[in-house]
Structure formats: C-alpha cells, structure tokens
C-alpha cells in the first residue's frame, strides 16, 4: 500500500469524509460492544485501588487510540530551564474581540448563546496570569468548519467556532459563544460525541501544556462516549463538566456556565513571600 493510501485510511477511519464506511472494520462494532469494554476498564480500575486523574492513553474502546498510544513507560525526569518556562503571549497575539465567537461573521450565528467563564490556576490554586487560552468547537448543528468534517449537518456562515483570549491577573478567562451540538462519528455504529468545547491551555511551565474538552452538565451521551470514559475515575471525568451558573446568565441575552481549570503543579519555586501580589 502506498504511503498516500495509508494516510487516507488513517484520515478516514473516524470522520465523515465519504458517504460510505471506508475501512473493513470501521464502524463495525455496536454500542453494546463499546459499553462492555468501557465497563471492563471501570471494573479493573475499581478493584485496582489506584487513583488516576488523567485519561488512559491505552484505551481500546476509543478505536483510534489502539495504534497511537506509547507502550513503553514514560521516562521520569526533573524539568530543567526551558521546561520550567513557557512562551509569552500578549496583545500583539490576541485581539479582545477574539473571545466573542458570536461576532466573527457578517451576522448572528444560529443557536443558543452562552458564556463560559472560569479561572486557570496551578495545583496550588495560584492564578496563571496573562496566558493564552484557545477554544474550538462545532456549531449548533454539530458541524465543524473543517474540510474533513462532511457529516450532513448545515454549516453556519456566521460561525467559525474558533476563539482565543488571554487570562487576566486573576487567571480568569471568558468566552461568548453558541452551545455546540453533539455530532456523529465513526468509532462504532451510531456513535455520537457529547456536546463539547475543545480547550488549549498553557501554564507558567511548558510541562503544564495541555489540550482538553469541556462538556455540558447532564449530557445523556456521557455513558456512551469512549473519549469521555477514557478517564476511568468518575470524579476525574466530572472535572471536565462545566456548571450552569445563573449569576453568569444575562437577562434576555444568554445562559452562563463556569468551568475552572487546574494545570499540574508548577515546578518552579519563587523566592518571594506568598502574599506578594
């Protein structure tokens, strides 16, 4: 098989790029098969007595992970110099309007207008200041602006689904957007992703760099989604679910959600009093 064919196969196995299922195994499994594997992981975790706060990289219910997870243990090392710092972003990089995803087109996007706000902090609860937060998401119909998303739902000419902002001195961020719709994918037959917003985050150390997904409370698809369930600890999974916050909602305008983000511990220590501000 030519390299190009491999690349095409790798692109198509999960996405709606063509009207028919492409690979021999693509979308062959039933939801019940996935559920059984998810339960096996949960049970194995429950009896292990271990505590995990992150997703498993080796998580076969998410089929695309099978050939894309390392099989050797990561090499533990103390971070040094460049690893203890992070790139700086500023107003040269990000325009204030980029945090409002409802004003980027020629008109109003269709859907439920929402605001998402929260704080980015380290695991000591200290704010990550003046740092870049990026989001991307599907539109209200569950469709991304992406050449490889061909699932039959409408694009919205007034919605790109992409936003950026810088955190404030208190680590706060805020986005105004449209609530994304759930969408189908090809992990298995009748597979649907719960509605989510992708978040890309930087800390004060580059080792805190992370990308994740924020979900909405009460989504009936949580139990069926192998990407969400790849975090086998139930409490840890809930850390990705925003809270509805009526204090953030605005009269006759939008509904509000809050979601705080904790990055792994900063390994830098500062020679200054804790109350310095």
């Amino acid at each position: 098989m030519a390299v190009e064919d491999h690349a095409e196969k790798n692109l198509d196995e999960e996405n709606f790029t063509a009207p028919t299922v492409t690979g021999p195994d693509a979308a062959a499994d039933r939801q019940a098969d996935i559920n059984r594997e998810v339960r096996q992981h949960q049970e194995q975790y429950r009896v292990s007595g271990a505590r995990e706060s992150q997703p498993r990289l080796d998580y076969a219910p998410y089929r695309s992970s099978v050939l894309r997870h390392p099989t050797k243990d990561p090499h533990h090392t103390d971070p040094e110099l460049i690893e203890l710092t992070s790139p700086a972003f500023g107003h040269r990089d990000v325009h204030d309007l980029e945090s409002d995803l409802t004003v980027q087109g020629g008109g109003e996007p269709i859907g439920e207008r929402i605001k998402i706000r929260g704080r980015v902090m380290d695991s000591a609860g200290r704010p990550v200041r003046n740092q870049l937060v990026e989001i991307w998401q599907a539109n209200a119909a569950g469709r991304y602006i992406h050449k490889r998303d061909q699932h039959p739902a409408p694009l919205d000419p007034n919605f790109t689904g992409v936003g950026r902002c810088l955190t404030g001195d208190d680590g706060s961020y805020e986005f105004t957007t449209i609530k994304p719709g759930p969408y189908p994918w090809k992990n298995h037959r009748n597979a649907w992703r719960p509605a989510h917003v992708h978040f890309s985050l930087f800390g004060t150390d580059f080792t805190q760099r992370m990308i994740t997904q924020m979900y909405f409370p009460g989504d009936p698809l949580f139990a069926l989604d192998p990407i969400y369930q790849s975090i086998v600890d139930p409490k840890a999974r809930e850390r990705l679910v925003a809270s509805y916050d009526h204090d953030v909602s605005e009269h006759e305008w939008l509904l509000g959600y809050t979601w705080d983000i904790v990055l792994g511990g900063s390994n830098r220590t500062w020679m200054e009093p804790e109350d310095e501000n």
Binding site: S53, P55, Y62, M210, A236, L240, V262, L263
Partner: peptide, 12 residues
C-alpha cells in the same frame, strides 16, 4: 485542586 484531565485534540 486535582489537575484537570486532558483529552484528545480530535480530528477538527
């Protein structure tokens, strides 16, 4: 203050 879990970047 347990760190927030990561998730895949996904295809899009």
């Amino acid at each position: 203050l347990t760190p927030t879990p990561g998730q895949t970047i996904g295809p899009f």
